[in-house]
Design a protein around this nucleic acid. Structure first.
Length: 842
DNA sequence: CTTATGACTTGCAGCAAGGACG
DNA sequence: CGTCCTTGCTGCAAGTCATAAG
């Protein structure tokens, strides 16, 4: 393959390759993918922030309740093979339209695009000049793609005709039918009625904090819903509630577990039985009918209980020392002092800005004429020690006590954990107001150390259905700032960030919710669409490299970077934030021309993560960069004629809804799909998951997802090495024993303790040798992967960039249990992708 | 147009729960 | 069967991008 593109202008050389070296030089060896060439460097992550947790934060871990159920449903869906997709993602119609009318799904852009895009010709042209030299997989692939670009889209993506509706289904011939037949999808109310003989379910459990006007409770309860149809809703509701409780019980857990692990691996190949009909039943949990468009109505009914606040500050009365003397503080002053005290052994304490900012804010609380006149003379040790003791006490608590505490918390929080959206119960993401704390920015942040004051109900705007009861304000005597009923947004509550007052903090549904699932899916569909446009786009920007119009030229080069290097767009930032850059905000000093068409990138990107990479670029790009840098200072903008909105406006001319970030998604998913399909061999599951991990790692490298090396990394490594040494010694002895045994001599005494060993026959010794060396090998592999991944973060791409359908379909094809790849929460998050066709390709 | 703001996604680190280990 | 380690999950900061406002 690859042939085709090889003559064109765009040289996507080692993009990923070069990047791969990016993280550490260590990994260069042994990694077949990092072939080379590129000059990667080690980037030392400036791991900025040592967070120490303040004891104030309660972290409640989200508990299983609903989880299990949904899991179950996933499995179900799974097993029964794909046909349910449609119902899961109902068309985007308006709830009010009759279902039947909706036969032809309304497609967003996707469909249209395809139709009117005259890609073919353009593409053809392109192919001829496409050049893709050492293209790394991703790009290479894309090139190939562009090759088939001449194939009429319709032919290429036959199934996608209805993208808007159900892109995931490749062959939905029958589904289609099904859909129109029982266009159950949709409106929950409708679904509700379906199941409940037309009445709107009423949720009126007095005990429950949520009173929904209409609830048909699907997702979680769906299991039983089916048999419940004739039960009066009110009762049903109770049942549902119960069910949910149950779900957290171990019983349910076990069931699920059984299903999973049992004889039926999650991804056994199944013949695809396509039944039409009854899928609607299962299509539950995700009814995504939201349209992607903005300003669109996102919901009809929305019921929730608002948010919960941290408990009020409980003064401990411990005094700090000022110039050696104890000072009594008011509770407010003490609270802030405590926030500072607990940060004693973080690296923030070495940062002057941090201390200055803290002092400024604290001083305000102390008042002008306070005894305490400077921070330097304050000794917070007493408070620090007190906190340590408290921490220890907590640690010492018995298991029961801890459990009781946790349950207590759960009980308090439970009502906040759920919202009912259009009758469907959904998990809420973060329903806790952020506790007060000292702001920790990442990198060199001008505001670090500022006091993040306590959020009160009066700061919080609640967004809720008109007919829903207004959540009771959890703090007596206070009240919400405002109640809105904005059905064009998906947040349930918001407040202004006290640190950056023009930033908002919002409470919305959890990642497993339909809202999130739907937009996630749309995101990946958009990226997939880019696949068919990419050839074109590359041709276009290649042409632009030499444009006389400097703006166009800059756009071309910027797009090239975004495509090739997966750079972020790079919005403008103000001085109140850490100084980081993205593509459009690159400074002259961030890119160095090193000769031979090599450009060295070196800058701090999002979260102040260092991006360091040297790449060979197209000669015209190289020239263009030299030109852009000419007559500028190091700190000047490289792309002075450009900003993200201009760039995105341009991208939109090339493909509908295209923006810069789509390239990251595209490159990531494409790479995964490509690598999985090239690398996966027959073998045991562990080998396959290793392939997956390897692909995942490449993606992480492309996206520059780093993590800081854990503090005890080196100790861990040396421990492993020690063990290996020990085993090696054992091995040596065994070999001697083997020799002797063959000569029928008894084994020597054990060197370690001088005791006698059992006299074994050669076979037995041979076996031991094999075992031991296997152990050694395994440990060596462990060390290797550990080193390999010590600065690479795989999670971010798995969560945000890799189309789960690639993973799921791959698992199905290769009989890898999906649980080997996705954790429980990820399975929930990706519920929408579980029933993908095994043949799905990105 | 430019700037501000709002809505929503992406990102790393820390923590705590769960698993491996001796 | 406690301790050490690993890992998943949450917290919240920091991006992107559309749009409203000036």
């Amino acid at each position: 393959m690859a042939v085709e593109a090889s003559d064109g202008p765009v040289t996507f050389k080692k993009s990923s390759a070069s990047k791969s070296n990016q993280l550490h030089s260590e990994m260069k060896n042994s990694d077949s993918y990092d072939d080379g060439q590129s000059n990667r460097k080690t980037s030392d992550v400036p791991a900025s922030n040592g967070q120490s947790s303040s004891s104030l934060n309660g972290k409640a871990s989200a508990i299983e309740s609903s989880v299990d159920i949904s899991k179950e449903s996933n499995l179900k869906t799974y097993t029964k093979s794909s046909p349910s997709a449609n119902s899961k993602f109902p068309s985007l119609g308006n709830k009010n339209e009759s279902l039947l009318e909706k036969k032809i799904p309304k497609c967003d852009d996707f469909e249209d695009e395809e139709d009117n895009t005259p890609l073919s010709d353009i593409r053809m042209k392109m192919n001829n000049d496409n050049d893709k030299k050492a293209t790394p997989n991703a790009l290479k692939k894309s090139y190939e793609d562009s090759d088939d670009d001449d194939i009429p889209l319709s032919a290429r993506l036959p199934h996608n005709t209805n993208l808007g509706e159900s892109s995931s289904n490749y062959d939905d011939s029958d589904k289609q039918e099904t859909a129109s037949k029982l266009s159950v999808k949709r409106p929950l109310d409708e679904i509700g009625s379906l199941h409940s003989s037309g009445k709107k379910p009423k949720l009126s459990d007095p005990g429950s904090s949520i009173n929904a006007k209409q609830i048909s409770v699907r997702s979680d309860a769906k299991v039983e819903e089916e048999d419940d149809d004739d039960i009066p809703i009110s009762r049903k509701k109770n049942k549902v509630v119960k069910l949910m409780d149950k779900s957290s019980s171990s019983k349910k857990l076990t069931n699920v577990a059984k299903v999973n692990k049992g004889a039926a691996p999650s991804f056994k190949k199944k013949e695809k039985l396509k039944k039409s009909g009854n899928e609607s039943e299962h299509s539950q949990s995700t009814k995504l009918q939201l349209s992607s468009g903005d300003g669109q109505k996102k919901w009809t009914t929305l019921v929730h209980n608002g948010i919960i606040f941290p408990p009020p500050y409980n003064p401990h009365g411990v005094k700090i020392l000022y110039k050696g003397k104890p000072v009594t503080l008011t509770p407010e002053q003490e609270e802030v002092a405590t926030l500072f005290a607990v940060m004693r052994d973080t690296e923030y304490m070495e940062k002057e800005i941090f201390k200055d900012n803290f002092w400024n804010d604290w001083r305000e609380l102390l008042g002008e004429n306070h005894v305490i006149q400077n921070l330097k003379d304050c000794d917070f040790t007493p408070i620090y020690d007190w906190c340590q003791i408290e921490k220890d006490k907590k640690k010492q608590m018995s298991l029961e006590e801890k459990k009781a505490l946790r349950e207590e918390k759960m009980k308090q929080e439970e009502k906040y954990m759920w919202a009912i959206v259009d009758g469907v119960k959904e998990k809420v993401g973060n329903f806790r107001a952020e506790p007060p704390g000292l702001f920790r920015g990442r990198g060199v942040h001008p505001k670090m150390g500022k006091v993040k004051r306590r959020i009160r109900p009066n700061d919080v705007v609640i967004n809720i259905g008109k007919d829903a009861p207004i959540p009771e304000c959890p703090i007596p005597g206070e009240s919400w700032a405002e109640i809105t009923h904005d059905d064009t947004v998906t947040w349930l509550a918001k407040w202004r960030d006290p640190i950056k007052p023009n930033k908002l903090k919002m409470v919305s549904l959890a990642a497993s919710s339909s809202w999130k699932g739907q937009s996630d899916k749309e995101k990946y569909e958009k990226a997939r669409m880019l696949k068919s446009y990419i050839g074109n786009i590359r041709a276009a920007y290649t042409k632009g490299f030499t444009s006389k119009d400097i703006t166009k030229q800059q756009i071309a080069v910027a797009t090239y970077f975004i495509d090739k290097l997966a750079l972020r767009a790079g919005n403008e930032k103000d001085d109140e934030e850490a100084d980081t850059v993205g593509c459009c905000t690159l400074k002259v000093e961030n890119v160095t021309a090193e000769g031979h068409n090599k450009l060295k990138f070196d800058f701090l990107g999002k979260d102040s993560i260092k991006y360091e990479n040297t790449v060979e670029v197209e000669p015209p790009v190289y020239k263009a960069i030299l030109k852009f840098q000419k007559d500028k200072q190091p700190g000047d903008d490289l792309f002075d004629k450009l900003d993200t909105s201009k760039l995105n406006a341009h991208l939109k001319e090339l493909m509908p809804n295209l923006t810069a970030k789509v390239f990251r998604t595209f490159n990531a998913s494409f790479t995964l799909d490509d690598m999985l399909n090239k690398e996966t061999k027959d073998g045991v599951v562990a080998e396959k998951t290793a392939v997956y991990q390897h692909a995942n790692k490449q993606v992480a490298i492309i996206c520059n997802h780093q993590r800081s090396v854990s503090k005890n990394h080196s100790t861990q490594i040396s421990k492993l090495n020690e063990k290996i040494d020990e085993l090696q010694a054992v091995l040596k002895e065994l070999k001697i024993d083997l020799d002797r045994a063959r000569k029928e001599k008894p084994p020597l005494k054990r060197s370690s303790d001088g005791k006698n060993k059992r006299n074994l026959n050669p076979e037995a010794i041979g076996k031991k040798i094999a075992q031991t060396s296997a152990k050694i090998e395994k440990m060596q592999r462990d060390i290797h992967t550990k080193e390999d991944l010590k600065t690479v973060a795989l999670g971010t791409s798995k969560i945000n960039y890799l189309d789960p359908r690639i993973t799921v379909s791959w698992c199905k094809r290769h009989e890898v249990p999906i649980e080997k790849i996705y954790t429980k929460t990820l399975l929930e998050k990706f519920a929408w992708a579980m029933d993908v066709d095994p043949d799905f390709r990105f």
